[in-house]
Simulated scan of single mutants.
Amino acid sequence: MDNLFLKYMNKREGKNEKPSTPIGNPGPVITISREYGCHGKRIAQKLAGILTAKSAASGENKEWRWISKEILEESAKELKLSSSLVKELSDYKHSHFFKDLALFFSEDYYPGDATIKNTIAKYIHDEAEQGYVIIVGRAGEAITKSINRSFHVKLEAPLEWRSQVVSEEEGLSPADAKKECQIQDKRRAMFRDYFEKGKKDIDFFDAILNCKALSDEEILELLIIISETRGFI
C-alpha cells in the first residue's frame, strides 16, 4: 500500500509528513482472512497459545496475541464513535444512511468512509510492527504485506459446506444460512477491495487453505511449521 493510509491520516490531522521512527525489525505477524463460516478466530486463539508455549520452551518468552474485535474497538476510540457503529459502517450495512449523513455533516463531525478505513488500517499496521500478533480479518494481509516477517493465510471452503456450518451454529434455515454467507462474503470483499484495489488473492496471500478438507488441528500444524521455518518462534 506504500503507507498511503498513513499519509492520509497525517494530512487529515494537519501533521507535517515526516518519517516516523522505524522499528528495527517489524513483526512477526500472521494474518488470517476467512470466508464466512470458516473459523478464523478459533484458529487464531489456539495458534496464539501454541506459539506462546513454544516461545517459552525455547527460552525466548515472547507472548503471542491475537486481535479481531480489538481492531474496531481501538479504531472507534480514535474516531470517537461506538465500536458497533464503526463495524456497521465499515461493513457497508448502512451505506445509504451513511451517504445521507455526508450531505449534511462535514468530516469534522462525522468521519467519512476513507477516514474510518484508514484509521482501522493504522491501528492494524501499528500492532503488526510491534510483532508477535495474529490479525484476524479487516484486510490485514494487504495492510501488513510490506512487513518482511509476515505470513498471510486465507481460509476458504465450498459455499454449501459453510452454509451448513452457519445453519447449525446460528440456528438458521439452510437457505437463510447460504444467503448470510453470501452477504457477509460480499461485505468482506468490499472492505478488502479498498486496500487491495481489485488485485487477485495471489498478490496478498501466501497460502489458501480449505476448511472442509482440513481440520483445525491440521491447519494449526501447517501454520506452526511455517512459523518455525520462518523463524517466528
Rank of each mutant, 00 (worst) to 15 (best):
residue 67 I to T: 04
residue 224 I to E: 08
residue 154 K to C: 04
residue 44 A to E: 04
residue 152 H to W: 01
residue 55 S to N: 05
residue 86 V to Y: 01
residue 162 R to K: 03
residue 1 M to R: 05
residue 94 H to S: 12
residue 80 K to Y: 09
residue 165 V to Y: 06
residue 100 D to H: 13
residue 51 L to Q: 01
residue 181 C to Q: 02
residue 112 G to A: 09
residue 134 I to F: 06
residue 48 A to L: 09
residue 190 M to A: 15
residue 147 I to L: 09
residue 19 P to Y: 06
residue 220 L to H: 01
residue 131 G to S: 11
residue 158 P to F: 03
residue 112 G to D: 10
residue 68 S to G: 10
residue 37 G to W: 00
residue 155 L to R: 04
residue 230 R to E: 07
residue 60 E to Q: 07
residue 225 I to S: 11
residue 125 H to V: 06
residue 78 E to A: 05
residue 27 G to V: 01
residue 136 V to I: 09
residue 76 A to D: 03
residue 52 T to S: 13
residue 83 S to G: 05
residue 207 A to C: 03
residue 161 W to S: 14
residue 58 S to C: 09
residue 142 A to K: 04
residue 13 E to T: 15
residue 41 K to Q: 13
residue 164 Q to F: 02
residue 188 R to S: 08
residue 200 K to A: 10
residue 135 I to R: 04
residue 86 V to C: 06
residue 34 R to C: 07
residue 227 S to Q: 02
residue 177 A to S: 09
residue 126 D to P: 01
residue 200 K to R: 08
residue 97 F to G: 14
residue 74 E to K: 05
residue 145 K to Y: 12
residue 232 F to L: 04
residue 195 F to A: 03
residue 62 K to D: 10
residue 178 K to F: 02
residue 8 Y to K: 11
residue 232 F to W: 02
residue 215 S to A: 14
residue 149 R to H: 12
residue 110 Y to A: 14
residue 69 K to G: 11
residue 138 R to Q: 08
residue 150 S to P: 00
residue 57 A to C: 10
residue 145 K to F: 07
residue 100 D to N: 12
residue 51 L to K: 00
residue 82 S to A: 15
residue 93 K to I: 10
residue 24 G to V: 11
residue 162 R to A: 00
residue 228 E to I: 06
residue 43 I to H: 01
residue 20 S to Q: 12
residue 107 E to C: 13
residue 131 G to P: 04
residue 8 Y to Q: 10
residue 3 N to S: 15
residue 26 P to C: 05
residue 63 E to V: 15
residue 11 K to Q: 14
residue 13 E to A: 15
residue 227 S to R: 00
residue 55 S to Y: 07
residue 27 G to L: 00
residue 220 L to Q: 03
residue 91 D to A: 13
residue 14 G to E: 15
residue 164 Q to R: 05
residue 212 K to L: 06
residue 120 I to N: 07
residue 132 Y to S: 09
residue 82 S to P: 07
residue 198 G to R: 02
residue 91 D to Q: 09
residue 30 I to T: 02
residue 71 I to P: 00
residue 36 Y to E: 01
residue 36 Y to T: 03
residue 203 D to K: 15
residue 201 D to V: 01
residue 48 A to T: 11
residue 86 V to W: 00
residue 186 K to H: 13
residue 5 F to P: 01
residue 202 I to S: 12
residue 67 I to G: 06
residue 219 I to P: 00
residue 114 A to C: 12
residue 142 A to G: 09
residue 119 T to W: 00
residue 11 K to N: 14
residue 155 L to F: 11
residue 81 L to H: 05
residue 34 R to S: 04
residue 91 D to L: 11
residue 126 D to W: 01
